[in-house]
Amino acid sequence: MAGLLRSILRAVLGAGVLSLAIGTAAAQGVRPAGATELQNRYAALRPQLEKNAYGGPIYIESAEGSRSSRGDIYAVLNSPFAAVNAALADPAHWCDVLILHLNTKLCRSGTAGGTTQLDLRIGKKFDQPLVDAPSVVFSWRALPQAADFLNVQLDAQDGPFDTHDYRIMLEAVPLDGGRTFLHLGYSFEYGTASHLALHLYLATIGRSKVGFSTLVARPGAEPELVGGVRGMVERNTMRYYLAIEAYLGALSAPPAQQLDKRLQAWFDATEKFPRQLHELDRTTYLEMKHREYRRQQAGQQ
């Protein structure tokens, strides 16, 4: 146990690898709502979507359990549902989305035993050999495409550093005016060793990191941004939402220009929230991601 804990601590304190994993976590396990329930959810959240601190129609929820956490984001996309459906119902397109995240070093789609899979390599916020980036293999499935509902689900039983039972779920419904209402949810569990390492990280190097939600203020005190595990969940939920938005926004560009457009768009969007999301300067991020994308494309050929 001590050796495992030391290994986890090295990863956590050195790179935030576990923090990415926790960023895709859920206390009760995310579940699809269905088209009608998701439309009802949109109606209920309209006041929060129209007026918030994010500068756009976004609503974030997070929760922490004893050995799990949850992150959900609801957002209105200025993209027609047909375009969202066509793009995100294709597993290969998900790799172009996921590679935008700082900690995603590689994503490859394939099949095994008749199941579509995404092999996602999670690493540090700088260049590193793939052998040093742990693999999380997701099974990928989607409901049959429909004119009014999109549901995609990724599941992985095993993950790095004493983590397990990942679930990433996306669902969307059309709105009027050529818009789309999207829900992105994450569920994830972790064992005793990673639980201890995570809380040590949050008590030391990660103690100043915050999320987006405000805590209920004590009488006479100013509201504070949520920290700890919930703050971690919210940061990564936002990063993945911005990756989806950047990918969809770049589809209108010529194919040869789409990669640069979505990389620039993702970086620009994260820099709107520097306290939560700033990690690298633009040049470092773009150079790193171009190298990682070339490596990803070479492996797919």
Rank of each mutant, 00 (worst) to 15 (best):
A2P: 01
G3P: 05
L4H: 04
L5A: 04
S7Y: 02
I8C: 08
V12S: 04
V12C: 05
L13Y: 11
V17W: 00
G29P: 03
V30I: 15
E37S: 09
L38K: 11
N40G: 11
Y42H: 07
Q48R: 10
L49G: 01
E50V: 05
N52H: 05
A53C: 11
G55W: 12
Y59H: 13
E64W: 00
V76W: 00
A82F: 06
A83S: 14
N85W: 06
P91F: 07
A92I: 02
I99K: 12
I99R: 14
L106W: 15
G110N: 05
L118T: 15
Q128E: 10
Q128S: 12
L130S: 02
Q145E: 13
A146H: 10
F149G: 10
N151Q: 12
G159S: 13
H164M: 04
H164L: 02
R167Q: 03
M169N: 06
E171V: 02
D176P: 01
R179G: 14
F181Q: 04
Y190G: 09
A193M: 15
S194A: 13
L196H: 00
L198Q: 08
I205R: 05
R207A: 09
V216F: 13
V226S: 04
V226T: 08
G227K: 06
R230Q: 10
N236M: 03
L242H: 10
Y247E: 08
L248G: 06
L251A: 14
D260P: 07
A265R: 05
A265D: 04
W266M: 03
A269I: 04
P274R: 12
L280K: 14
Y285K: 13
K289N: 06
Y293H: 15
Q297C: 02
Q301I: 05
Q301G: 14
